[in-house]
């Protein structure tokens, strides 16, 4: 018998103690009121800012200038963007003439790992959606906008449409039917990388981005 069969046999030999199915939906319905967009935006901001992210309200017109300003403030002149995405293409069109070099993730990581780790100071990605309750960005990296874009560069800038903020993680998974469509990697990001492993003292930029900047599109505040 294989280890698999032995383990399963032991578990199956144990008393069968079926338990009632938990009602997750009822708990959320009873404990997490559905908020309007303005409230969700406010809660999202408060939470993610508490986690040390920087949030800027932008519009379809102002987001690129704001992006440039954010980079200039940090004296960053190089940005990793995803081509074939609307925001990536917009950046590719607008930023290089203004002195910001835009590199693209156009080949498998093996071909440029060292450059990614050593010469990529910042990246721009979109967020698929967000969660107000916890101040969380939802990213589903894909072939166009791969996983390491939101992990390796020390500064990660995220474009988020404020109409896509859910109340809770639960609501997001239900509304978007995640259980039938999960990608290779789905990510929740709720601030810059951090650790409190030395004397419970909080330090940012442990292994991932030291700074997380959210450009919150459509927020009129």
């Amino acid at each position: 018998m294989s280890a698999r069969d032995r383990i399963l046999a032991k578990l199956k030999a144990a008393p069968n103690l079926p338990k009632p199915e938990p009602d997750v939906a009822a708990w959320f319905a009873g404990h997490r009121p559905v908020e309007n967009t303005a409230d969700k935006v406010a809660r999202f901001r408060k939470c993610i800012e508490f986690a040390h992210a920087e949030v800027h309200a932008v519009t379809a017109i102002t987001w690129l200038p704001k992006l440039r300003e954010v980079l200039a403030a940090r004296q960053i002149d190089k940005l990793l963007v995803a081509e074939e995405t609307p925001h990536g293409n917009a950046a590719l069109d607008e930023l290089p003439p203004q002195g910001i070099e835009c590199s693209t993730y156009d080949m498998p990581i093996e071909a440029w790992k060292t450059e990614m780790f050593h010469a990529t100071p910042a990246s721009l990605t979109a967020a698929r959606a967000a969660i107000a309750e916890t101040g969380t960005l939802i990213l589903w990296p894909d072939a166009k906008e791969p996983r390491l874009m939101s992990l390796v560069p020390p500064v990660h800038i995220v474009l988020l449409d404020s109409a896509k903020i859910y109340n809770t993680f639960y609501e997001a998974t239900q509304a978007e039917g995640w259980k039938d469509s999960l990608p290779t990697n789905a990510l929740l990001i709720s601030g810059p990388s951090k650790t409190a492993d030395i004397q419970v003292t909080l330090a940012y930029g442990a292994h991932g981005p030291k700074e997380l900047i959210v450009l919150l599109m459509g927020d009129e505040q």
Partner: peptide
Amino acid sequence: NISTYFNMISSPRKPGEKDG
């Protein structure tokens, strides 16, 4: 209220994907 990262992995790198 949540950790910085919640990482959900459902497969190895798929054809066309550039990392993972």
